[in-house]
Design a binder for these strands. Structure first.
Lengths: 141, 141
DNA sequence: CTACATCCTCTAGCAACTAGAGGAGCAAGA
DNA sequence: TCTTGCTCCTCTAGTTGCTAGAGGATGTAG
């Protein structure tokens, strides 16, 4: 009903910036929408749904290639969804690893900052720890 | 004593790849080392320490510009170290924010995956949630 | 009639590297 | 002697996911 909106409206509705929408079209995430006689892109509800899907997935940190795979699955609803599950699981693993490595960094940074007496650089614990990795508790980085 | 090593050895000692060391020189993080008569870079202990400092800071997620500032402080040990402290604190805040947003993503991904019955894409919860943001508990992303 | 908004295309830039082309010098082995 | 292999050099272009800007067309409002 409301279909056929220009790119600016599509951007407002989906929260994706205008150049980014064009970029998604260029890399083939979004099928090229039809053009008006004045050569303007004209997006329908289906395009908007697709754009929202992309935005949501990007918000969850999925890479463009994963999103491409997820969209392909969405386009073929009779397929098994094991692939979608795998992509989501892989992303979950990534997120878990990232969280644990950031947690370690947090501890290191806190130790650094706590040790700093706010005097001269010569005695600054932040600089000292950076200069000498062996002063780190956590050896993973 | 052991000074004056070529770039390959410097790379091995510091754990930074050869092209990356050249890159750091190019962007001015590392002063251009002297060359041998055969035009080879020759790194001394001071360069190696600086490279290790950079590697450690990169490992902690500091951006190049922050590292530039930290190195400048290290080069002037009589200055106050408040600036170093501020850079570290800013990084800590970033890390904390990143952790909490990743924690939210983790919950969302887990909910998604738990809801998936591994049947057809048509009923796949992963795809459904991506397609409809309102099904998300967490509205931050 | 002019200002403003919206759209179009195309190119170039960001961070922080990484990969590859194309070339040189030197030592050890066949 | 020749070849293989290692290290080094410079330079350019690619990566990811956009973002910014140039330069131009068209429509509407005042």
């Amino acid at each position: 009903m409301t279909s056929a909106v220009p790119i600016g409206v599509a951007a407002r509705e989906t929260g994706i910036k205008v150049p980014t929408i064009r970029y998604y079209e260029k890399i083939g995430l979004l099928p090229p929408p039809p053009r008006t006689p004045r050569n303007r892109r004209s997006f329908d509800d289906c395009d908007l749904r697709r754009l929202k899907f992309i935005r949501h997935a990007r918000g969850l940190g999925f890479e463009i290639d994963s999103i491409r795979a997820l969209l392909l699955l969405q386009d073929n609803p009779d397929q098994s969804c094991i692939a979608a599950d795998q992509i989501a699981c892989a992303r979950l693993t990534e997120v878990e690893q990232r969280i644990s490595s950031l947690a370690a960094l947090k501890i290191e940074l806190e130790r650094m900052i706590a040790g700093c007496k706010r005097g001269h650089v010569r005695q600054c614990r932040v600089i000292q720890v950076l200069a000498d990795h062996s002063q780190c508790q956590n050896l993973r980085h």
